[in-house]
Structure formats: C-alpha cells, structure tokens
C-alpha cells in the first residue's frame, strides 16, 4: 500500500499537472468572482465562504478523470486486481494520493484566497477546518465516480454528472461551517455533520468503488 502511495505521488509530481492544475483553477475561479459580482466588499465577504467552497469542489473534480483512467489505459488496473493488494485498499490509497495532491494544496491555499474575497477575520480558521474535514470526502466520492466511468471514452463529463450530486451534503455542511464561523455563530452542529459524512464515505465508499471497478474490468 505504501508502494502504491509513493508511486502515485511520484507520478503526480513528475507528470506535472497533479499538484498545480487544481490549485491554479481554484485561484482563477476565486479571482474571477469579484470581477463578476462587482467590488462591493460587504457583499463579497458575505458570499466568500460559499464561493471558496464551490471553487475547491470544482478544482477537486477537475483532476478526477485522471485518477483511474491512466492506470486503466496502460493495464495497471488489471495487474493490481490480480495482485495480493485488495482492490478496496488500492482504491482508498489512490483516493488518499489524490487528496494529498489536490485537496491538501487547496486547504493550504484557501486562507490566501480568502483575502481576495474579503473574508471576515473570524472565518479563516473555520474555512481551513471545514476544507480539511470535507475535501477527503470529495476525493473518496470522486474515486467512486472514476471507478464507475473508467472504461468510458471521454467519460469525464459523465463522471461530473454522477459525482456532483453526491458532493451536495459535503458542500452544504462545509460551506455552512465556514459561513457560521465567518459571522461568529456556533459551528458545532454542521462541523459534526461534515465530519460524520467524511468518515462515513471513507468507511463505505471504497467497497462501492471496488465493486464498480470489478464490473468494469471484465
């Protein structure tokens, strides 16, 4: 499992685009928003948590179609499926690698982009906490989407349509944590819901992903 994680990280670093692409997309989306809604700093600070969460979610989605498609094309998935490593574990490790290369940089960059959207000072901590708790769920659910569409040529759009509705609970509670934090309200309830959703999908989704992938490998 460690070998698979190391290999995926090395590939993401060397092939380029792994670390940078999602991050650059996140940056551009959040920079574009003030141009779109105008320079009213009060309005911006009100919508900042939601925009930052939406940006992070879309940036996460962007790199999902590479998650399994490359391994499918060169036959690695066939060989992994016949290896001693359970497919469930392999997919969980791949989701972890995806989170480290996509989700984690988003979490770290979010406070910086909060400045651009005039996020209130009290919101920064909760924005980072909510993203750190929520983005692993995005990677794990995304792996399921990638496993469902792995054999489909140009399946990226289809995968987005399948995955985005599954992202709704994470988005609702994640953005709610950040919004309540920014306005100085209690964040406990949405935070617990967000953590619950993430833990639930980490525990269950790898089984669904592996089942979908086994069907696609036939």
């Amino acid at each position: 499992m460690k070998a698979l994680l190391r290999r995926d990280l090395a590939l993401a670093l060397r092939a380029g685009g792994g670390f940078g692409l999602g991050l650059a997309f996140f940056l551009i989306v959040t920079v574009l928003v003030p141009f779109g809604v105008g320079p009213q700093s009060e309005l911006l600070s009100r919508i900042a948590p939601g925009i930052l969460w939406l940006g992070a979610l879309l940036a996460c989605l962007l790199s999902l179609d590479r998650l399994l498609a490359l391994d499918w094309e060169d036959g690695t998935l066939d060989l992994l499926a016949t290896s001693p490593l359970p497919l469930e574990a392999a997919l969980l490790v791949k989701a972890l690698a995806h989170w480290i290369t996509t989700g984690l940089p988003l979490v770290l960059a979010a406070p910086l982009l909060g400045v651009l959207l005039n996020l209130p000072a009290s919101g920064y901590l909760w924005l980072v906490v909510s993203l750190a708790l929520g983005t692993p769920a995005l990677s794990v659910i995304g792996t399921f989407g990638a496993a469902l569409t792995v054999g489909v040529k140009r399946g990226g759009l289809l995968m987005s349509l399948l995955v985005l509705p599954l992202y709704v609970p994470t988005l609702i509670f994640g953005a709610e944590v950040a919004r309540r934090g920014a306005t100085g309200m209690a964040t406990e309830t949405p935070l617990l819901m967000l953590a619950g959703i993430t833990l639930g999908v980490i525990a269950l989704m790898p089984f669904a992903s592996a089942a979908a992938l086994r069907v696609n490998l036939r």
Partner: peptide, 23 residues
Amino acid sequence: AHSDGLKSMLTVEENLTFWAEVF
C-alpha cells in the same frame, strides 16, 4: 497481457520495484 502496466514517467528500476513491493 497485451499492456504491461508500465508508467512512462518512472524508471525501469522504479517500475520493477513497485511491483515487487506490491507482491
């Protein structure tokens, strides 16, 4: 099978070591 499961951005040694560790 027909495709070897090799990663073009890894060296020969890294490719083999990966599979050795997986197995």
